[in-house]
Lab assay of single mutants.
Amino acid sequence: SIVTKIISIVQERQNMDDGAPVKTRDIADAAGLSIYQVRLYLEQLHDVGVLEKVNAGKGVPGLWRLL
Score class of each variant (00 low, 15 high):
L66N: 01
K53N: 14
I2H: 05
I2F: 07
V22M: 08
A20P: 04
S1C: 15
G62K: 10
G59E: 06
I35H: 05
R13H: 07
L66C: 06
I9L: 05
V3F: 15
L42E: 00
D17Y: 15
L66K: 02
V60L: 13
T4R: 14
V3E: 05
A20K: 13
I2W: 13
Q37C: 12
R25Y: 06
R39Q: 11
E43C: 09
L63D: 07
L51H: 00
H46G: 05
N15I: 11
R39M: 13
V50D: 06
R13N: 03
K5G: 03
R65L: 08
A20L: 08
I9G: 01
Y36G: 10
K53H: 07
G32Q: 06
I27R: 01
K58N: 14
I9F: 15
L42M: 03
N15Q: 11
I2N: 04
K5F: 09
P21C: 08
E12H: 12
T24E: 15
D26C: 04
S1D: 12
V60Q: 15
G19L: 04
G59N: 09
I7A: 03
L66F: 09
K58W: 03
L45C: 02
V38K: 00
N55I: 07
V50A: 04
N55A: 10
K53Y: 10
R65N: 04
R13S: 04
I27E: 01
K5Q: 09
I9M: 03
P61W: 13
V38H: 00
T4N: 13
V60W: 14
I6W: 03
A31E: 01
A20D: 08
Y36K: 14
I27G: 01
V50E: 01
I27V: 06
V22K: 02
R13T: 03
K23I: 03
D17I: 09
I7N: 00
D47V: 13
D47R: 15
A30K: 06
I27F: 02
L63N: 05
V60I: 10
G57L: 05
G59H: 06
S1N: 10
Q44F: 15
A28E: 03
I6E: 06
A20F: 06
T24N: 01
V3G: 04
V48T: 09
I6G: 00
D17R: 14
A28S: 04
G59F: 06
R25K: 14
V3D: 02
L33D: 02
D18Q: 12
V38Y: 00
E12N: 09
L45W: 01
V3M: 14
V22A: 04
Q44L: 14
L66Q: 02
P61R: 11
P21M: 05
D18C: 14
G32A: 07
K23E: 07
R65V: 08
M16Q: 12
L45S: 00
A31K: 01
Q44W: 15
T4M: 13
Y36H: 11
K23D: 08
S8A: 13
K23T: 11
E43T: 06
V50T: 05
V48Y: 11
A56F: 08
E12C: 14
Q14F: 05
V22P: 02
E43P: 01
Q37S: 07
G19D: 06
Q37W: 11
E52D: 05
L67C: 14
P61Q: 14
P61A: 14
D18L: 10
K58Q: 12
I27N: 01
D47L: 13
D17H: 15
V38T: 14
D26A: 10
D47E: 14
Q14D: 03
S8P: 00
V48H: 11
G32N: 08
K23W: 05
V50Y: 05
G62F: 14
Y41H: 05
L42K: 00
L45P: 00
V3S: 07
L67K: 14
K5T: 08
T4P: 05
E12S: 09
D26W: 06
D26T: 09
P61K: 11
H46V: 15
L42H: 00
A28W: 03
S8D: 07
M16K: 13
N55L: 07
R65F: 09
T24S: 04
L51A: 01
L51T: 01
Q11F: 11
A56M: 10
L51V: 09
A56T: 11
K5W: 10
V54T: 05
K53G: 03
L42Y: 01
L42I: 02
W64T: 00
V38I: 09
L67D: 04
R39W: 10
V48S: 11
D29V: 12
A30T: 05
D26H: 06
I2P: 03
D29M: 13
Q37G: 04
I35T: 06
L67Q: 08
T4L: 13
Y41C: 05
L45Y: 00
P21G: 15
Q14P: 02
E12A: 11
Y41A: 05
D29E: 13
R39H: 07
S34P: 12
G57C: 07
S8N: 11
L63F: 08
A28F: 03
R25D: 09
A30D: 09
K23P: 13
D18I: 07
V54C: 07
L45T: 01
A30N: 04
L45E: 00
W64E: 00
T24K: 02
L51C: 02
D18E: 10
S34V: 09
V22D: 00
D26Y: 11
I9A: 06
R39C: 11
G57Q: 07
G59K: 06
I35W: 08
M16S: 09
N55C: 13
K58S: 11
V50H: 03
N55M: 08
H46N: 07
V10W: 02
L40S: 07
D18P: 11
N15S: 11
L42G: 00
V54W: 03
G32T: 02
Q37A: 10
D26N: 03
E43G: 05
L33F: 04
L67S: 13
P21A: 14
L33S: 02
V38F: 01
W64C: 03
A31T: 08
H46R: 14
L66V: 11
D29H: 11
L63A: 13
P61Y: 14
G49Q: 04
R13P: 02
I35K: 04
P61F: 13
L51P: 03
A30E: 08
T4V: 11
P61C: 14
D29P: 01
R13M: 11
V38A: 14
A30C: 06
G19M: 06
I7K: 04
V10E: 00
T4Y: 14
D47H: 14
L45A: 02
Q37R: 11
P21R: 03
L66R: 02
V10Q: 00
Y41M: 08
E43R: 07
Q37H: 09
K23S: 15
W64Q: 00
L42C: 06
A20E: 07
S34F: 15
K58H: 10
V10N: 00
H46I: 07
V60K: 14
D26R: 03
K58G: 09
T24R: 02
N55D: 12
A20N: 11
I6N: 07
I27A: 00
Q14I: 04
V22C: 05
G49H: 05
K58E: 13
S1Y: 10
E52L: 06
D17A: 15
E52W: 03
Q14L: 04
V22N: 01
I2R: 04
N15V: 09
N55R: 08
K53Q: 06
L40W: 14
I27L: 04
G57F: 05
E52V: 09
Y36M: 10
T4F: 13
V38L: 05
R25C: 07
D17G: 15
I9D: 00
V54Y: 05
A20M: 09
L66I: 12
V48C: 15
T24H: 01
D17Q: 15
R65W: 12
V54E: 02
G19Y: 15
K23C: 09
K5C: 12
I9K: 02
W64H: 01
R25E: 14
A28V: 04
Q37Y: 08
E52C: 08
A30Y: 05
D26S: 04
Q44R: 14
P61G: 15
D26L: 04
K53D: 09
W64F: 01
I27T: 01
D26Q: 05
V48Q: 14
I35D: 05
G19A: 05
S34Y: 04
Y36W: 13
E43W: 10
H46S: 13
R39S: 13
L51D: 00
L63C: 08
I9Y: 13
Q11S: 10
D17F: 15
L33Y: 04
Q14H: 09
I6K: 00
V22S: 05
P21H: 04
A20G: 10
Q44K: 14
G19V: 03
Y41D: 00
L33E: 02
L66P: 02
Q44N: 07
V3T: 09
D29N: 11
V10T: 02
T24V: 04
G59M: 05
Q11R: 14
G19F: 06
V48G: 08
Y41W: 09
L51W: 02
S34N: 08
A30S: 07
V48L: 14
L40D: 05
L40H: 09
I27H: 01
V50M: 07
Q11T: 10
Q14R: 03
S1T: 10
Y36N: 10
L63P: 02
P21L: 07
I6F: 02
I7V: 07
E43Y: 08
A28Y: 02
V10Y: 01
R39A: 10
E52H: 04
L67H: 11
L33M: 13
Y41I: 14
Q14K: 03
N55T: 09
K23N: 09
G49E: 02
T4D: 12
W64A: 00
T4E: 12
D18T: 07
